[in-house]
Design a protein around this nucleic acid. Structure first.
Length: 476
RNA sequence: CGGGGCGUAGCGCAGCCUGGUAGCGCAUCUGCUUUGGGAGCAGAGGGUCGGUGGUUCGAAUCCACUCGCCCCGACCA
């Protein structure tokens, strides 16, 4: 294997594709727009699932599973929803060699089929709240696809809740948004801006859509998760009603929320470099790899034994493995494990054996630190924590440095082309101005912060009075 | 759907313009020497040149049609 990754500065898009395929996270499938998630990529997803699932459970949610196929008519029950999703639906018209009486839509999202079930299950205020999540695949017939970032089929989780009051639903939507924000910061080492989507950007059928927005190194924003307050739009369409304590009938208030395998794409871009993937320790399927170096058979015997003992010692606390292959050189292993993003490498060769130490090398900056064998567990833990927090700090600094105030439309357009990133800009709130920005610059309002953005100003576009600023960026 | 590019060995490519029966690098296999940043030498195996049709004595090469993928734009997590 020679140098296989196109330098990021040369061609960002190819760099991304190279990292994903060469690290063996994923590969293209025979079906256009679809991808195969290989063991490395899937392990990262499992790590995400593990963390998120625990947080959902902690906040009272349970997992369930709803069918892949949705009767086409269900999709039509909520006007805005069908308008938003119909164009990108895959539809099954035949089964068992016969034409179906009613076509089945392959779920692009599961609101409709889940709420049809909720209508059946919910009778009383005592049945509320319903807090269900499902881990599933969904299909959206996108025109243009990219590994992880936008594929025809993708994996995600979708939470669907039903509440007795509007306030409860709003609390739920915000609670989940906070779970997402903390997960991507704490585990993905990816800082985000949180806020509200504009009317034109919100989920088809939602009352309000909250989101987390990250910034990629090429200056483009990436929506990393969404949480919707659906109000009563779906409960009215699907007749999800309950009897209140007072004996009246009321429609439930609902939320839905999700993050997808797109997060893996964000992780690749956020931390990767010309040597390949660089995974934050908390999500790395392999956190520590031990690479032995030997010449003679005697060295091989002794060093392999030390490596095995180290794995024994570390495996209780870390995801660790030793690369004892004899058919490839140490140098080859260094490159391979760096390509695969392992955050910490422990080298052990004759010189280290002499000094009764390992040589720790960090993936992020290749900084080398000797680690005495006696302090292996403690020092490894400290190094991994250090790496995790430095990755977040670096990403935070990048986000900070690439968030600029925009007060002049011409200057804004210039900066958008030259450096990209997020722009804080005043917006009068009119759909016309929002439209104009999008049409003229391809940038969109990524989100309206929930707080801290109240100040008097002038709309970047029309100059009208504005009471708040919003985040603008070009996005994936 | 528009613009661009590409389909030749597992992977990356050359050959095509100017037709003559397929080559290079990496990988794989065997052997020996190697191992602290992608080792060296010697040998071996591996291809209906995306598909269909046409032109021709002869097509990877020329012509027509067709299929697929990637990249850039319009829709989207």
């Amino acid at each position: 294997m020679a140098k296989v990754i196109t330098p990021r500065s040369e061609d960002y898009s190819r760099w991304y594709t190279d990292v994903v395929t060469q690290s063996q996270m994923a590969d293209y499938s025979p079906v256009k727009g679809c991808m195969v998630i290989r063991p490395l990529g899937y392990s990262v997803w499992e790590g995400m699932q593990r963390e998120l699932d625990a947080r959902f459970k902690e906040t009272g949610h349970q997992n369930a599973y709803f069918p892949l196929f949705i009767p086409e008519s269900y999709l039509h029950k909520e006007a805005k929803h069908v308008e938003g999703f119909a164009p990108e639906c895959a539809v099954v018209t035949h089964g068992g060699g016969k034409k179906l009486e009613e076509p089945l839509v392959v779920r692009p999202t599961s609101e409709t089929i889940i709420y049809a079930m909720y209508a059946k299950w919910i009778r009383s205020y005592r049945d509320l709240p319903v807090l269900i999540n499902q881990w599933a695949n969904v299909v959206r017939w996108e025109m243009r696809t990219r590994l992880f970032l936008r594929t025809t089929e993708f994996l995600w989780q979708e939470g669907h809740t039903a509440h007795a009051t509007e306030a409860e639903a709003e609390d739920e939507a915000l609670r989940i948004l906070e779970i997402y924000r903390r997960f991507v910061e704490d585990h993905m080492a990816t800082p985000v801006y949180t806020g509200l989507k504009t009317e034109s950007e919100k989920f088809a059928g939602a009352l309000r859509t909250y989101c987390i927005e990250a910034l990629m190194p090429d200056g483009k924003a990436l929506q990393a998760g969404t949480s919707h307050n659906l109000g009563q739009n779906f409960s009215k369409a699907f007749e999800v009603k309950f009897q209140t304590q007072e004996g009246d009938w009321a429609h439930v208030w609902q939320t839905s929320w999700g993050v997808s395998t797109r997060l893996i794409g964000a992780l690749v871009m956020e931390h990767g470099d010309d040597n390949g993937l660089s995974l934050p320790p908390r999500l790395a399927p392999v956190q520590v790899v031990i690479v032995p170096i030997w010449k003679t058979d005697e060295e091989k015997r002794r060093i392999a034994e030390v490596a095995r003992l180290a794995v024994e010692e570390l495996k209780g606390a870390f995801r660790v493995q030793a690369d004892l292959r004899d058919e490839v050189s140490p140098g080859w292993k260094f490159n391979e494990w760096e390509l695969k993003g392992v955050p910490l490498r422990l080298e052990i060769g004759p010189k280290d054996l002499e000094k009764d130490q390992f040589l720790a090398v960090r993936r992020t900056d290749r900084k080398k630190t000797p680690v005495p064998r006696g302090a292996l567990v403690a020092r490894t833990g400290a190094l991994l924590e250090e790496i995790q927090s430095e990755m977040l700090e670096k990403a935070r600094a990048f986000l900070r440095q690439n968030t600029r105030d925009a007060t002049d439309y011409t200057a804004f357009k210039k900066a958008l082309d030259e450096v990209g990133g997020f722009f804080r800009a005043h917006w009068c709130g009119s759909p016309e101005c929002e439209r104009r920005i999008k049409d003229e610059t391809k940038a969109t309002i990524r989100c309206i912060p929930l707080e801290g953005n109240r100040e008097e100003g002038r709309c970047l576009i029309c100059g009208a009075r504005s009471a708040r600023w919003v985040y603008l960026a070009r996005a994936y």
